[in-house]
Each structure stands twice: as structure tokens, then as C-alpha cells.
Amino acid sequence: MSILVLAEHNNASLNAATLAVVAAAKAAGDDIHVLVAGSGCGAVAEEAAQVESVSKVLVSDDPAYAHQLAENISTLVAEVGKGYSHILAAATTTGKNVMPRVAALLDVDQISDIVGVDSADTFRRPIYAGNAIATVQSSAPVKVITVRGTAFDNVAATGGTAAVEQVAAAGDAETSAFIGEEMAESDRPELTAAGIVVSGGRGMGNGENFEILYSLADKLGAAVGASRAAVDAGFVPNDMQVGQTGKIVAPELYVAVGISGAIQHLAGMKESKIIVAINKDEEAPIFQVADYGLVADLFEAVPELTGKV
């Protein structure tokens, strides 16, 4: 049986999150097809056809899919996917929005946010903010799964030579409409793909003070994240939140600045290879997970660090 991977993209290029999903698919089976649903998304299909281990790319190009509205995409994915053994997507906000609908349309349970594939029907996933790892087995005829990207090594983006096939669109549900979006513009690397992440918490005090983190990040070629407290206080926008209910990151180096280390925050970053904590409170729980802890005032330590790296 074959595995269907739902491509994540913006109609212009393939999101690297898809490469980790293909890696997870490889662990569950070997004939991997990628579905690209979008509008004017031919370039994405070309890109997907070059991804390592992909044997076929299915494209459904229709205005109904321009903004990945779940009402429209889910009927297509369920229709195309019902003959497959597995349907996989990234556990991004797009995947999380669409896949449970697909599962419900196919009358099967969904397995969310897997971090390991033990066999074609057995998967590991974190529960309780990562404080426990559940191993679950699925007897569903089609296994609908979202994949935590940081847990799998991306397959190569090139080297494959898959055939590209068109599939008919499944129509517009006409129950929802896209109104607009405000996307963060940044020259820094994307948070979930960056090799180094520098994050600030409530200890930053205000939004302007984040400038000292941006300087450090730019020196290191890092992405910038934040705790929920910093986002709630309006210091920085929501797309920067790291944690149980924000983004999950696992960079080579994570620098937590003015962050206390609540379990909900740790859930989003504790798989990082090296963790550095800068906090003036030596009792802060973040030090329990940090490889290198520096008890210091961040307003002194961060500029000094920027000068020395």
C-alpha cells in the first residue's frame, strides 16, 4: 500500500516541513506520493517531484485551494487519500487545521504530532505537554497522522524524479471565505527551521528591549522566539511563541533569555541540542534543563554576549 503526504506550501514554493513528513513516511512504508493542493501551484509540484523517495506527485490546482481553507482541502484529501494506507501532514497550523477533518470524513481516529514511527501501525507521540510519551497502535484502515517536524531528519529536497499527475478538484464547500492575512515579514531564519534560536520572556520588560535580542540573533544567524508571557504582554507577535501551544523547536542551540522555564514553555524547546539560560534568578526552573546557565541581568549579559560571539 502507498502513503500519501499532503504538501505544505504557499503556492510558490514547498515548505521544508514537508521534507520531515516524507522522512516519517519512509519509516512507515516505501511508496510515497505527495499531494499538492493549491492555486497556481505548478512550481510547488515541480519542487515536490524532486524530493528524495517520492514516487508520484498529485496536483490539484483550483482557486478553491488558494488559501488552504480546511473545508475545501479536507474533502479533496479524503477523496484522494481513501485508497492509501496512511495520510500524513506536518503538525503545523495548516496540517492541524485540515487533517482532523480528513480523519472524520474517513471515520477514523487521527494520531496527532508523532515523534516516532515504531512500525507501520505503531507510533510515539508526546502527551501532557511532553511530560509523557505515549506509544499508540492504530487499527484504522487509513491512518491519518500529523508529524512533528523537529523529530525527523528532513529527506533531501532534490535527487528524486517523480511523475506529476493532475487530479480533479473536489469543489468549493462555499461555507467559508478567506478575508485577509497579516504575515510576519522577517529576514531572519524561520523559527522551526533555524539552527540557533534566541528567545525572550517576560524578563525582557517591553517590546523595544527585544532589539538587544535581535542584535544577538543577527550576529548568530538565529531566529527569535518568545515565551507566552512575552506574547501576551504584546512585546512581540503570536507567531514567535514557543511552547506546548506555540511552536515546537529543536535547534542546535537555544538561548532562553528572561524566561523562567514553565513546563508549557519547556514542551516547545527541550529537545534542543544545547540550551543556554540567562536569568537573574538562580532558582529559575529553566536552569534545570540548561546545559549552560548564566545567572545575570540580561540587560548587561546579552549586549556583552553580542559583542563577544
Binding site: I111, Q137, S139, V289
Partner: peptide
């Protein structure tokens, strides 16, 4: 269609050092 086979604690991180 899901059965829970087991639940384990996550790999513990060792606390490192203070610099």
C-alpha cells in the same frame, strides 16, 4: 481504532553547569 500500548516518561535532560 487507537490502542494505547504504553506511556513512558520522556528522556530526561541532565541539568548542566552554571557558568
Amino acid at each position: 481504532t487507537i490502542s494505547l500500548l504504553k506511556v513512558e516518561p520522556p528522556a530526561e535532560r541532565q541539568a548542566g553547569i552554571k557558568v
